[in-house]
Write a protein that binds this DNA or RNA. Sequence first.
RNA 1: GCCGGGGUAGGGUAGGUGGUCAUCCUCCGGGACUGUGGAUCCCGGGACUCGGGUUCGAAUCUCGGCCCCGGCCCCA
Length: 431
Amino acid sequence: MEFARPRGTRDFLFDEMRQRKKAESTLRKIFESYGYQEIKTPLFEELKLFTTKSGEEIVDQLYNFKDKSDRELTLRPEITAPVARLYLNELEKTAVKPIKLYYYGSCFRYERPQKGRFRQFWQFGCELIGAKTPQGEAEVIALCTDSINALGITTADVNINHLGIIRGLFSHFNISDETQREIMVVIDKGDKDLLIESLSGDNPVIDNDELNQILLKLIDLVGDKSILNDVEELIAPYDESKAALEELKELIDLLEDFDVENYTLNLGVARGLDYYTGIVFEIYVPELGAQKQICGGGSYSLVKVFGGQEVESTGFALGFDRLMNAIEELTEVEELGSHLDIYVIPITEDVRSEAYKITQLLRRNGIKADVDLNNKKFRKLMNYADKIKVEKIALMGPKELEDGKITIKDMVSGNQELIDIENIVEYVKGE
RNA sequence: GCCGGGGUAGGGUAGGUGGUCAUCCUCCGGGACUGUGGAUCCCGGGACUCGGGUUCGAAUCUCGGCCCCGGCCCCA
């Protein structure tokens, strides 16, 4: 084709758009029911915003460019950092805390596209700023699971961890930041063989057998809250991890209050980034294969990222495209019906002007109505109404107009009824 | 960045050893059909991903680009 779209971006047609809009509105409703307010941030930001947050390495994965004034900019790869920037710019000094923000927008990463992975993709997420308490975290997780349930995704597996436990161990054994980061990345991959290799191979990342043995046991702890006892036993000698474990326990108790029942404790969940310090969680839909992660979230510290007054935040981002894949995979795709409520058909040429008036009347009363704009003949209009699968048509000709009436026909049953024009809005709405 | 498989009307396809070859279905527009749709028939519309090379001649062979589909790497 002469005009190709850039690799890894997508077009969306009507039906797909409608399914997406439906999911979007479901999510909005739920986020707003939790008291979140929507914000929008720019699609591009200073490159520095993201390198500060995530390190220089991520430039490889960014859609970055220089503008005409030679500024280093980039399309945003995620929305947490822009929200943090916005907070520092606009809200830090004025807004009443806690602040509940949500966003829905596209993000960009310069990577090879593949299934469940595009260069332009959509994230739906939130940030709870200034309420880093176990109850804040519990509520955020509740919002997340409610959202996923409302979309009909039934096989989602919510995995929760508290990074303070493992950080406590690192601290106890005096592990350097750099080594911590290295080992976190390996844990984050979820590949145990690789971890064993890293820890006990020829060139161990950590030269401490005691810690290595604990780590290997720790990341294997996956299950319901009964595993907390195992964790407790394992970290008993290490005071640095105990506070985190207590926080985790408190969170687990609170999840019950927030009516969250299905979750997995998974001490192997990690994050590559070192500003995540407390609770982290990830959600997987196994049916999606390699790109099964539909959500990532946790608590982090804004001060660690950008400076400014210490503010603890909790948030998560849903991968909207993957959610749509999961919905498609797991739920019966609903027939959408027509995009119109009614189609207005003038039977003869001389009543067209009346047809336009009636169409406008319907529209102004919130009815999705359409009318022919191409002077097509009656038969063609019937044909068209059939093709677009509209359920109702309004038929009008000189005969019924003389009496101030109009025919409403149900295209599914074939029944039709003669009604007074002044009642048309009520009639169409009423059924 | 790497590896595989692809690209023929809007969608789905046939042809592929170079030449009478651009096929069929669907779709879209018009008509038969004049105040009641879905059927049928007729007419019409629309494509060889782009560029270079070989050749008298390329959808077909060849090289490169672009794009698509998988899989790695990566995944804040």
